[in-house]
């Protein structure tokens, strides 16, 4: 659990972060989003004291972070960054084992933990343990970066645009993996990004920052439906907001039970998003879809009217 209470950061005369208050609950994935220079990275780096805050208080599990030694504090938190920051002169295995070794775990335990993490992130031990970072693809390197951040099993994970430098396909697959991981591990995660789609996909709580202040925070759907001002609205995609919202809602939320009519020819999974359903309708010129479960058995149907309509009955 992380609490920021009226926190301000000044660099000389410039105020980078201006009196923000934010509370991230245990197990919550909180995404800080905003344009460059809005103070989101500064906020993240104040939490592990890579930057010292000027005013206010930051608490971890109810204790002020200034009461810890910097190094002790940082070893309790995972840290992953855009450039991966992998040590180029160390092998993958040695990179991942960094924090456990700093914490003076016995060698056998470090080794076991490294193997466990590599398995968790789908990096085969034989193929990757002895490789050096420059021999990895961008996606693999970032997986190693995440594994390293998770190594000492910290409760808190700080991620500063970790997927920012990856191609869109790799980025999406890593976002999915992060969500799957988070469903298993329930870490408290603060994630910084400027990519709104990434933010909407990942966030339990979305925090929009602008010029050092928090403009709005809440669940992604809340922000989409009621943006606080024009800035949040434009950041959320303006006219694309409908599509972005549809991407967050599953088909199962809008479908009707199977009626007396014939089944529609086009099928869609009940876990698919409304956005995918809409795209399928457009592509196939179909006004109705048959909704199927994981075993491809029909469980309901979705009409265009239901899809677009009914926020009131949704």
């Amino acid at each position: 659990m992380i609490d920021l209470i009226h926190v301000t950061k000044r660099f000389g005369a410039a105020t980078a972060v201006d009196d923000i208050s934010l509370s991230v609950a245990q197990g919550e994935l909180c995404v800080l989003v905003g344009t460059s220079g809005c103070g989101k990275s500064t906020t993240l780096r104040m939490i592990n004291r890579l930057i010292e805050h000027s005013e206010g208080e930051i608490h971890i599990d109810g204790q002020q972070i200034r009461r810890f030694r910097e190094q002790t504090l940082r070893r309790r938190m995972g840290y992953a960054i855009q450039s991966t920051g992998l040590f180029p002169h160390w092998t993958v295995a040695r990179n991942i084992g960094l924090v456990p070794r700093l914490l003076k775990w016995p060698a056998a335990r470090v080794q076991a933990r490294v193997e466990e993490l590599m398995a968790l992130l789908g990096l085969s031990m034989e193929a990757f343990a002895g490789k050096y970072p420059h021999q990895l693809s961008g996606g693999q390197a970032q997986r190693v970066g995440v594994a390293r951040a998770l190594a000492a099993d910290p409760d808190i994970l700080l991620m500063d645009e970790p997927f920012g430098a990856l191609d869109p396909i790799t980025r999406e697959s890593l976002q999915d993996e992060l969500r799957t991981l988070q469903a298993r591990l329930h870490k408290t995660i603060v994630f910084v990004t400027h990519d709104m789609d990434e933010a909407l996909r990942l966030a339990d709580r979305l925090v929009v920052m602008h010029q050092g202040r928090i403009v709005q925070q809440g669940r992604p759907l809340e922000l989409l439906r009621e943006p606080a001002d024009g800035f949040v609205e434009s950041l959320l995609g303006g006219e694309d907001r409908g599509l972005k919202e549809a991407a967050l809602l599953p088909v199962s939320q809008r479908m009707l039970p199977l009626g007396p009519r014939l089944l529609a020819r086009e099928r869609i999974g009940q876990q698919a998003s409304l956005r995918e359903a809409l795209s399928l309708m457009l592509w196939r010129h179909a006004e109705r879809l048959t909704v199927v479960d994981d075993d491809d058995l029909p469980v309901g149907e979705l009409s265009l009217r239901r899809l677009v309509g009914a926020r009131s009955d949704g």
């Binding site: 592990n48 890579l50 910097e70 190094q71 002790t72 504090l73 940082r74 070893r75 840290y79 960054i81 855009q82 450039s83 991966t84 920051g85 992998l86 040590f87 180029p88 960094l98 924090v99 700093l102 970066g145 390293r148 700080l158």
Partner: peptide, 13 residues
């Protein structure tokens, strides 16, 4: 590379 140094410090070295 400053990224490497940043990571090293952020990891608690």
């Amino acid at each position: 590379d400053p990224g490497v140094i940043d990571a090293a410090r952020g990891m608690g070295m």
